[in-house]
Simulated scan of single mutants.
Amino acid sequence: MKLKKSHLALIALVVIVVAAILIVPQLNKTKKILIGATVPPHGNILEAVKEDLKKEGFELEIKVLTDYVTGNPATAAGDLQANYFQHGPYLAQYNESVSEKERLVGAIGVHYEPFGLYAGSKKALDELAEGDHIAIPNDPTNGARALFLLQDAGIIKLKDGLTPQTGATVLDIVENAKNIAIDELNAELIPAALQDVAYAVINGNYATGAGLSPKDDALFLEPSDGEAGKTYTNFIVVKPENENADFVKALKKVLFTQKTYDFILNSPEFKGGVIPVFTVSGK
């Protein structure tokens, strides 16, 4: 039996409508990704690219990390697709402490945060006195970084031959003219302990989070164009099998833009303590 042309047209129309109903939601569907980040500045930077990332097909959810301990295990376990809170030496130290299946990779280098030496009960470096206490972070990589900063400031001297890559501990101090006491504390607790010590070395993100301006308030600051800037780049970190995943490519695309570059440099919340390490095409 032959179908009338009108019937054929109606069938064709139904097929087109059904196909549209099935296909359009798939085209509009975004994939969710969960990234753990400290605030500021990491979470703020991710927040700034949320809408751009949605245009690339990914809906970003940010889980705020309040310490340096939980982000890597959660990423290795798959509870987070990525994390953004750490520099290269910290990641290397973590990878050395875990099994191969728990190791992670730095997929996108985004920014650098200069360490600073801040006033506690003493307001200037020329007030440094015999037996004063200086607080530094107690994790191995940031503790070593703090010791190199104190050496650059002329307060202590470390053994010859040590570098950020080799690390350093308080046992490597060979000169300490004023017998300074080094108090090793959790990095996130140091800003609250400022009045309990003469001075403190504070991570850039915790300094800005406490209302301090690295550019204006630090008594001594790492030079952003020196070796520290290259060594302590902060990365978006993922499992090795995700290093070239579509969501990582999309993140890199939306992060490495003039918009993000300007946001990092000019955000009043960062107070000059966050420096982008990527270059923008055409700059």
Rank of each mutant, 00 (worst) to 15 (best):
S121N: 12
A92R: 13
P240H: 06
T260I: 11
L53K: 00
P191T: 05
T169K: 00
V64C: 01
D246N: 11
V201M: 08
K271R: 15
D216A: 14
L212V: 15
A12N: 09
A129W: 05
L53Y: 06
I108F: 11
G209L: 05
V18N: 00
P223Q: 14
N28T: 14
I190D: 04
I275A: 02
E188P: 01
V98C: 03
E188N: 10
H7I: 15
G120T: 08
L65K: 01
A9E: 15
L117K: 02
Y90D: 11
T166K: 15
E222S: 03
E96T: 14
I45T: 07
E227R: 09
Y232I: 08
K259V: 13
A19V: 15
I156A: 11
N176T: 06
L8T: 13
G209S: 07
K178P: 03
D160S: 15
K271N: 12
L171Q: 15
L3D: 07
L149Y: 05
I236D: 14
G229I: 05
E113N: 00
F148M: 04
V69P: 14
Y206E: 13
Q26W: 07
F235G: 02
F247Y: 15
F256I: 10
K122P: 04
F270K: 01
H87R: 12
T166V: 13
T260S: 04
F148V: 10
D152L: 00
F247L: 03
P40D: 13
E188D: 10
A146P: 03
P137W: 08
K215G: 08
K178Y: 04
G88R: 12
D160M: 02
Y199L: 06
G282H: 05
P214D: 01
G88Y: 14
V174R: 00
V170S: 05
G43R: 02
A210G: 10
E175M: 08
G167R: 06
L65V: 10
T163W: 03
P73K: 01
Y232N: 11
Y90L: 10
I16P: 15
S6R: 11
D139L: 04
I62Q: 11
E269K: 03
A210R: 02
K54Y: 11
A187C: 03
G204L: 03
D172C: 01
I275C: 04
A107G: 02
P137R: 00
P276R: 09
A168Y: 12
T233G: 02
N203I: 11
A12R: 02
G167L: 11
D152Y: 00
L125Q: 07
I16M: 06
A198P: 08
T169C: 00
K283W: 11
L65E: 11
Q258H: 09
V237H: 04
F220Y: 14
I136E: 07
A144C: 01
L10S: 13
K215L: 13
D216W: 06
V39N: 14
A74Y: 12
L194E: 07
F115Q: 09
N142C: 02
F115L: 13
A119Q: 02
A218V: 10
